[in-house]
Design a protein around this nucleic acid. Structure first.
Length: 808
DNA sequence: AGCCCCGGTGAAGTC
DNA sequence: CACCGGGGCT
């Protein structure tokens, strides 16, 4: 049998066997990067290194799983299982579960998602009496996120003259204070946001040399995939961990760096060379994935960027088909043309649905393709977009789970303390919230000791709150004894959510009910899968800490085999879009996703759609060269996903933001040498003549200008000279809204004396419904309901204490 | 206490 | 156009 090293070309082989010391591998698209990474790990293990001593950081959990499976085939399942492999976020979340108590976090800390974070920021704005129009929560969160990814603490932020000057000049001087409060609040709630997982890991490694040493010794070999997309915070973690043994290898491709918006920094590659002067660098330049046409076109595209490493990607594969350009008149037609082109290729090439991907710049573009595919009965799966875990009903159940695990999780508490309705109103919740903020404690602590706070909450509501506390406590006590499925099921039923949804027989209600079932099924699957060794390790630590807790009387009886709810929650919060694919992997479906999500994947046939100026490249990227270059790298990533054939499409008109927008083909199409391209036939264009294509573009932009010519008033609304918008504001609609405004503003106070004395048969007038007759009176004042037959508006049931009536 | 309707506002990519 | 928050309605 061949040894696996024999499968490699000389460059790959050299990169694979150079296991000691710092190594940088610059790997072009499709050059066998994953194979090298996999074999490197296998090779290190064959040399006798224990899998427990190897840390591999990948971009998705799915990539980690697949790589582990490949390694298992070489070194055996048992050994491979012991590897520490996963995304930065999931690996360091696990380490923080073990070590976080040193930083004052509970080991069952909650991970706040972006919604939670924004909600916390909104509260802080309220508390500080700041305008959320000026301090937009998403903007504030971005700013905090940036700071954390640069390892700037709240204190440092406030004391830093540069950030202060920036915030002063943007009229947001309180950002530092918000950041400080945000950290305090999250800490108090025992919660970390995504950036904290990296930031707090840095704090841990900085402030606890013994911990640093422990992990330096543990992770003797460190491998980082997609290194071009790491940010400063990640870079420092790696640098610290590798400092002792220096067996650090990074694999990346500067041409595929597409995440600068979340702090990724190409500079990390350059810094790497500075940090490790005795670094060995390898270049993988032979592409095994794609045809000569695709590789050639991709090289052509990327050559337009100034910032790049010298690298020549080449292939010995066939020439393959030219890259087809599809022109559509509208976004919907684009969907149809892509779907039928897909069906045609599928038939001609006898391809599977799963051989195809449709890649777009923004999630909002997916709709037209979904519709067209559905019409042709082509099964598809869509990655990203609104996640299953974001659905209201799912989040409700998960909030119960989160609060059960971490009672201090204020965000979850607020969500469910009155859902399903149990008579704890907004006023009460506000009081609790204010008290918690004042005393710097969690809302849970307040409601557990309600008597001590004198909040003016009456006995009735107090007892309802006490019931709620008892209920959650009963779940928390069960955590160690029930598996995740049993407990989640008990929570879903016991909370009343299942009942509430079950009684709702509307289509939406049924679908919500099904989503809860799906969630529970997912938890069941999770419970049935055995733990990995790292998960066992973390489990031991958490269970040991539970045993220390004297309030937990039965901790020593805990069944260690049990996969518990807290483990499930950890797992799902850090899934990437690609990881979240719930479908059976074997199902034969077309993949729809953003180009960002497609990174690292490959498909035989790829459609890159929406190639229009201001969409791709995005208009937000047009202000700076570096942004435009990132956009171009994104296009490079898209094209290089294709093995056999790539197709590009654009529409000349599309709906966006409720307007019709006329579009011009993307400059990126121009940037490809036309010898690689196959233009639409009806245009009768000589594909070997670039100037003809320029003309073709001008025709479209001219056409657009002509068509919107009558609407010149609106022209100045558009952001670029070549795109114009048409605004549709039907006058009729305006009138209606004016009318209703008029009606509500002229309202008069309700005369309750009249309402109280109404009798059956009385004739009344209502300012909205007109004239009518009382046909029925039910209930005792002030809950009296009247059924009134209006002359023109039909029969209405009105609550008399509210209804604005006059007696005639 | 919730539901509904209105008007205002925003609109890229993600762990 | 889609989403959200506010305020009116019952």
């Amino acid at each position: 049998m061949n040894h696996f090293l024999d499968e490699l070309n000389p460059a790959q082989r050299a990169a694979t066997i150079s296991t000691e010391g710092p190594v940088m591998i610059i790997a072009g698209a499709g050059s066998g990067k994953t194979r090298v990474l996999t074999y490197r790990i296998a090779h290190i293990m064959e040399k006798g290194v224990d899998a427990f001593n190897i840390l591999a950081l990948t971009f998705t959990n799915k990539a980690a799983r697949e790589m582990k499976a490949r390694i298992a085939k070489i070194v055996g399942d048992k050994e491979a299982k012991n590897l520490w492999m996963g995304t930065f976020h999931s690996i360091f979340a696990k380490i923080l579960r073990i070590e976080g108590e040193k930083l004052g976090y509970p080991n069952n800390f909650t991970i706040y998602d972006t919604d939670d974070s924004k909600s916390v920021i909104k509260e802080i704005l309220k508390q500080l009496n700041l305008d959320d129009k000026i301090y937009k929560p998403s903007m504030v969160l971005n700013r905090i996120s940036d700071a954390k990814n640069k390892l700037i603490s709240a204190g440092a932020y406030i004391n830093n003259p540069i950030t202060q000057a920036e915030d002063q000049s943007s009229r947001k001087p309180m950002l530092g204070q918000i950041y400080l409060n945000y950290q305090k609040r999250n800490f108090k709630a025992g919660a970390m946001d995504f950036d904290d997982l990296l930031y707090q890991t840095n704090v841990l490694l900085r402030d606890f040399p013994d911990v640093l040493l422990k992990y330096q010794n543990k992770f003797r070999y460190i491998l980082v995939d997609e290194y071009q997309d790491t940010n400063f915070s990640q870079y420092v973690i790696i640098k610290q961990l590798a400092a002792r043994f220096q067996n650090i290898s990074v694999v990346g491709d500067d041409a595929q760096s597409i995440y600068s918006f979340r702090g990724a920094n190409i500079q990390n590659i350059l810094n790497f060379e500075k940090d490790y002067p005795d670094l060995k660098t390898f270049k993988l330049e032979q592409n095994y994935r794609s045809t000569k046409t695709i590789v050639g076109a991709a090289n052509h595209i990327i050559a337009n960027n100034k910032d790049q490493f010298k690298k020549v990607v080449f292939t010995d594969n066939d020439d393959g088909n030219k890259i087809k350009i599809i022109k559509a008149s509208t976004d919907n037609e684009e969907g149809q043309k892509i779907a039928s082109s897909l069906a045609e290729i599928r038939m001609q090439e006898r391809a599977m649905n799963s051989d195809f991907a449709i890649l777009y710049r923004t999630n909002a573009q997916s709709r037209a393709f979904e519709e067209a595919l559905r019409r042709l009965n082509i099964p598809y799966r869509i990655f990203g977009g609104v996640s299953f875990y974001q659905r209201k009903e799912v989040k409700d159940v998960l909030s119960y789970c989160r609060l059960t695990i971490n009672n201090n999780d204020d965000e979850s508490l607020k969500r469910i303390i009155n859902y399903p309705a149990r008579g704890i109103g907004q006023t009460t919740i506000d009081k609790i919230n204010v008290a918690a903020a004042e005393h710097d404690i969690s809302m849970w602590t307040v409601i557990c000791n309600l008597k001590d706070f004198n909040l003016g909450i009456n006995a009735g509501i107090s007892s309802k709150i006490a019931d709620f506390v008892t209920q959650i406590k009963s779940y928390s006590l069960l955590l160690p004894y029930k598996d995740a499925f049993e407990l989640a099921n008990q929570i879903a039923v016991g909370s009343g959510i299942v009942k509430e949804l079950y009684t709702d027989k509307t289509p939406e209600g049924v679908s919500r009910y099904e989503n809860i079932q799906e969630l529970l099924n997912g938890i069941k699957d999770f419970v049935e899968q055995p733990r990995t060794p790292q998960e066992d390790e973390i489990n031991d630590v958490i269970k040991a800490s539970l045993a220390k807790d004297e309030t937990n009387l039965f901790a020593e009886e805990t069944d260690n085999k049990l996969k518990t709810l807290d483990e499930f929650m950890q797992e799902i919060t850090l899934l990437t879009d690609v990881d979240k694919d719930k479908d059976d992997e074997n199902k034969d479906k077309v993949s729809l996703m953003t180009i960002h999500a497609s990174k690292g994947l490959e498909f035989k046939y790829v459609f890159v759609v929406g190639l229009e100026e201001n969409l791709f490249p995005s208009q937000l990227s047009l202000n700076s060269r570096t942004d435009l270059e990132e956009e171009r790298r994104l296009f490079y990533v898209a094209i290089t996903r294709a093995e056999r054939q790539a197709t590009l499409s654009f529409a000349t008109m599309r709906y966006r933001y409720g307007n019709i927008l006329y579009c011009e083909p993307s400059r990126f199409i121009d940037e490809i040498d036309s010898k690689y391209l196959d233009f639409p036939e009806e245009q009768n264009i000589n594909p070997f003549n670039d100037t003809t294509f320029d003309k073709f573009r001008e025709d479209y932009s001219d056409g657009a200008k002509k068509e919107i010519g009558f609407n010149s008033k609106n022209k100045n609304l558009s952001t670029s000279s070549s795109n114009s918008t048409l605004n549709f504001n039907p006058p009729a609609k305006k009138l209606i809204s004016l009318n209703s405004k008029f009606m509500t503003s002229s309202s008069t106070p309700v005369d309750l004396t009249i309402n109280k004395s109404l009798q059956q048969g009385d004739i009344v007038t209502h300012e909205k419904f007109g004239k009518g007759q009382v046909v029925l009176l039910e209930g005792v004042w002030p809950e009296t309901k009247a059924t009134i037959q209006f002359e023109n508006q039909g029969t209405k049931n009105l609550l008399l204490k509210f209804a604005r009536l006059n007696k005639l």
